[in-house]
Amino acid sequence: MNKLLARTLIAAALVVGTSFTATAAMAADAAAAAAPTDEQLAASVKAALDADATLKAFNLVVTSKKAEVTIDGTVDHGEQMAQAGQIAEKVPGVKYVINNINPKD
């Protein structure tokens, strides 16, 4: 292989490698920018709980710290407690749910 062809191939490989690295970094930046804040996450979980017909009557308090969501409050039945946890887990961005809801039964 002649020297010119070898240099061209090396240069092309470097450009492709740099391009891939830049693209990966840009994707990581975009993902970080798209992640909701804890306040936004808590509001999204609260909205999801309030949208549920069986849970909207209860005053459930939602907080979030580092995408770990905590739900506090009281409901009538254990099934409602479990349902609230399941709804919270499905909200995009939630990593973990601490379900501190107390059922009356």
Results as ranks from 00 to 15, higher is better:
71 I>G: 10
8 T>S: 08
51 A>E: 08
87 I>Y: 00
66 K>C: 03
44 S>A: 15
74 T>L: 09
22 A>L: 15
53 A>W: 10
69 V>G: 01
60 L>D: 04
78 G>T: 06
104 K>T: 14
16 V>Y: 11
39 E>A: 14
86 Q>E: 07
27 A>T: 13
19 S>A: 02
35 A>F: 10
71 I>Y: 04
72 D>M: 05
13 A>G: 15
85 G>C: 05
69 V>I: 13
35 A>L: 14
60 L>R: 12
46 K>D: 14
18 T>V: 13
3 K>C: 02
23 T>F: 07
14 L>C: 15
46 K>R: 13
5 L>N: 08
25 A>C: 12
49 L>K: 03
8 T>G: 01
71 I>A: 03
34 A>K: 15
92 P>E: 00
45 V>K: 05
2 N>Y: 11
45 V>W: 05
45 V>R: 04
24 A>R: 15
52 D>F: 02
86 Q>F: 03
59 N>P: 02
105 D>I: 13
3 K>N: 13
86 Q>G: 11
46 K>G: 04
1 M>D: 08
13 A>C: 10
8 T>Y: 10
85 G>Y: 05
9 L>Y: 01
86 Q>V: 00
98 I>P: 02
42 A>N: 05
82 A>F: 01
92 P>G: 01
62 V>Y: 04
66 K>Y: 03
99 N>C: 13
66 K>W: 04
53 A>G: 00
9 L>N: 03
5 L>W: 06
97 V>A: 09
39 E>D: 13
103 P>I: 01
46 K>H: 02
5 L>I: 14
